[in-house]
Amino acid sequence: MKVSLVVSDLSGGGTVRAYLLAQVLKELNYQVEIVGFNFGKELYAIAPDQIPVVSIPGSNYPHFFGSVSQLLKKLDGDIIYAVKPKPSSFGVALLKKLNSHRPVLVDMDDWEMSWHGGFSFQYQPGIKQFARDILKPKGALRFPDHPVYINWMESMVKYADIVTIDTQFLQDRFGGVYVPNGKDTVMFNPDKYDANTSRQKYGLSDYRVLMFPGAPRPHKGVEDVLMALEQLNREDLRLVIVGGSPYDDYDDRLIEKWGRWIIKLPKSPVEAMPEIVAAAHIVVVPQRDTVVARAQFPLKLTDGMAMGKPVISTRVGDIPEILADTGYLVDPNSPSQIAMEIEAIFDNFDLACDRGNKARKRCIERYSTSTMASTLKDALAKLVISKSSPKVGMT
């Protein structure tokens, strides 16, 4: 059987979750494809090996209808799995359901409306403004994923056959099956790598490495780590950022202000990430306490946990439950507490590594792709029973 994962924008962050779900579905012996629009110049992330990606050029309304028509022709999975409740993913999936009666799943790893004011969002234009938003070539309502449309899509989540989510926040709001952001703990295995060799390969041998293996954004609290490094003022410490942000010039602004503490490594495929994370002494995930952060399960947590690294993170959202007593938790927006934990870890690094090993065990038990696969298998089995359709099922 085949699953078509629909991604709203292959140049956006949703691709990471899509790739992860694709890997899990392959573990369950499904054929998998990723089909999505590309509104940018390049893919946000490099696809894992043997995961086919079909890219359709994105465009604004009214040309977007033509893009949708192209994408619908590419969707030939027995199951359609939309990543994010957006018109450009879930909306397309529902259209496919109407004319093919194939079951539709929708996955949420963010509260999309949190990027647009959350509970306080309102769109109440006057008549003239509404006309401009509709009629002008760059009018706001010509963008396929305008928050007005996303709000509509979130109200239609109930029409999905299965909803999957990755945080308690999202489950409280939308219900659904809890499928956390797991990690391939066979691939991410610290026993396969020598930390010193990795540091030498990536030019990090002279430093004690704090690593943020992802794209910095304001709610992710990277600035708090940099302020902590300013407080410590130790020349042997560096923050290594892997990949950087494709959205704007936020990386450049960080480097402009705190460049002496930052080393930036290029975007890398998932298969290269275990070796890169192996070079870290500490993995830092300093989320700030915003509604955006509370709705997220930071993938970087399981990067560090799977590789047995000491992880410093914040008491935000599900993070205390995910790490439990295997990490180092501080209050959000607290550079001084981050600085204290950095010093404590390096003052007794053997103890910190023992805690990192416990984090790996917890990751294997609760946050591995195998755990995700088991949960999805059960959910899809229920879908088969409810539909009683010979076209949908396990291989």
Rank of each mutant, 00 (worst) to 15 (best):
K2S: 13
V7D: 01
V24A: 00
D49Y: 11
F65L: 15
Q70R: 06
L71P: 01
L75R: 03
I79N: 01
V83F: 00
A93F: 05
L94D: 07
L95S: 06
K97P: 14
N99I: 15
V104F: 05
M108C: 11
D109C: 07
E112A: 06
G117I: 13
G118M: 08
D133C: 12
L135G: 12
P147N: 05
V148R: 04
Y149G: 08
M153F: 03
S155V: 02
K158C: 09
V163P: 01
T164P: 05
T164H: 04
T164L: 06
Q168L: 05
G175L: 02
Y178P: 04
V179M: 02
N189E: 14
T197V: 15
S198F: 08
Q200W: 10
P213F: 12
A228K: 02
N233W: 01
L239M: 09
Y247C: 00
D251R: 08
L254Q: 12
L254P: 06
I255S: 08
K267Q: 13
P274S: 05
E275F: 04
V283T: 09
D289P: 07
L301Y: 08
A306Y: 13
M307S: 04
V311T: 13
G317W: 00
P320Y: 05
T326D: 08
F349W: 12
L351T: 09
A352C: 07
G356T: 08
S370F: 12
T375F: 08
T375D: 06
L376T: 06
A379V: 12
S388M: 15
P390H: 05
V392F: 06
